[in-house]
């Protein structure tokens, strides 16, 4: 046992030498000549594993992810700039919901997150989701959240079909359509804003804006640093950098949302249609209604995002 532990420690030390300090296997084995035969095959394997797992995200994804993250960062920054009394109102509403949930159901909020429409805790889950929406400041952020919730509702419809509960399918499908209608309203040209900057419509988004968005992100960093040292000297430049970044971010987020909506518009009805083969006959009509309504709602939502 002791020998094994010693060997495990030596193996780890060799891995540190290989992976962190950049030594070769041969250099490493020189430190432990008596164990060389045992260590060598393991180090070869470890090195191969290390090389195989050195995957890099592709640049398109890296840029898209960066924009989205900077967008979220910017939203957190904007939150602080809201008038204090608005925040008090917002937080008062959220705290009322949270307190009501805590008083009424103790620690059930967490348990409710995985509940289904036919379960006791489902209403708690819906209220919690509403609180999330209330806490999401931007119209586009709300639309993104509604999109994730739409995906959840489709999961729930599928589960309810399996349980032969057509009335729950109808109720959940109504929620799904409500969310899709909200997405259409929130992403219409008038609905989406970043602070005081109106998001560009798809026609206004140029290739140049997309390719220079990364530079704009860097400009934001520089602008943020500049604010600290000489806020009074360069406010105009900082605002320009932020505005440029905001436009790029919004454009990218809309494109991402549109891509997700396009995928869901195809996958969700297809998934519900597939259920028609296996679900109990009593759920068939509810499923057909859900498919028909959601297809129409998806179409409108995608159109509002500049769909083809």
């Amino acid at each position: 046992m002791r020998k094994t532990r010693e060997f495990e420690n030596i193996l780890d030390e060799c891995l540190e030498r290989l992976l962190v300090r950049g030594e070769t296997i041969e250099q490493c084995l020189q430190h432990f000549p008596k164990l060389a035969n045992e260590l060598k095959p393991l180090l070869e394997t470890a090195l191969a594993v290390n090389q195989a797992s050195a995957i890099q995200p592709n640049s398109e994804f890296r840029d898209r992810a960066r924009y989205q993250f900077y967008s979220a960062l910017q939203e957190t920054g904007l939150k602080r700039k809201r008038p204090f009394f608005l925040w008090r109102l917002r937080w008062a509403a959220v705290m009322s919901i949270v307190l009501a949930l805590l008083v009424a159901s103790g620690g059930t909020v967490m348990a409710a997150s995985g509940s289904m429409p036919d379960e006791f805790l489902y209403p708690t889950k819906l209220v919690t989701e509403q609180a999330q929406l209330l806490l999401t400041p931007s119209a586009l952020g709300k639309a993104e959240l509604y999109t994730r919730l739409a995906d959840k509702r489709v999961d729930e419809i599928a589960r309810m079909a399996g349980k032969n509960k057509p009335e729950k399918i109808e109720q959940t499908a109504q929620l799904l359509n409500k969310y899709l209608t909200k997405i259409a309203a929130l992403t219409s040209a008038k609905g989406v804003k970043v602070g005081i900057t109106v998001a560009p419509s798809p026609g206004e988004t140029t290739a140049t804006e997309k390719t220079t968005a990364l530079a704009a992100a860097q400009a934001l960093q520089e602008a943020t640093a500049a604010e600290k040292t000489s806020a009074a000297e360069t406010p105009k430049i900082n605002e320009q950098a932020k505005s440029s970044l905001a436009r790029s971010i919004m454009s990218d987020r809309r494109a991402k949302l549109k891509e997700t909506m396009g995928r869901y518009a195809s996958n969700h009805p297809a998934r519900l249609r597939a259920l028609l083969e296996t679900a109990p006959p009593a759920t068939r009509q509810a499923l057909l209604d859900a498919i028909a309504k959601s297809e129409g709602s998806y179409k409108k939502a995608i159109e509002s995002l500049g769909g083809d």
Binding site: T4, R5, F7, E8, N9, L11, D12, L15, L42, T45
Partner: peptide, 8 residues
């Protein structure tokens, strides 16, 4: 370390 050893 033991898990790392056995995994390799």
């Amino acid at each position: 370390k033991a898990l790392q050893h056995s995994a390799i």
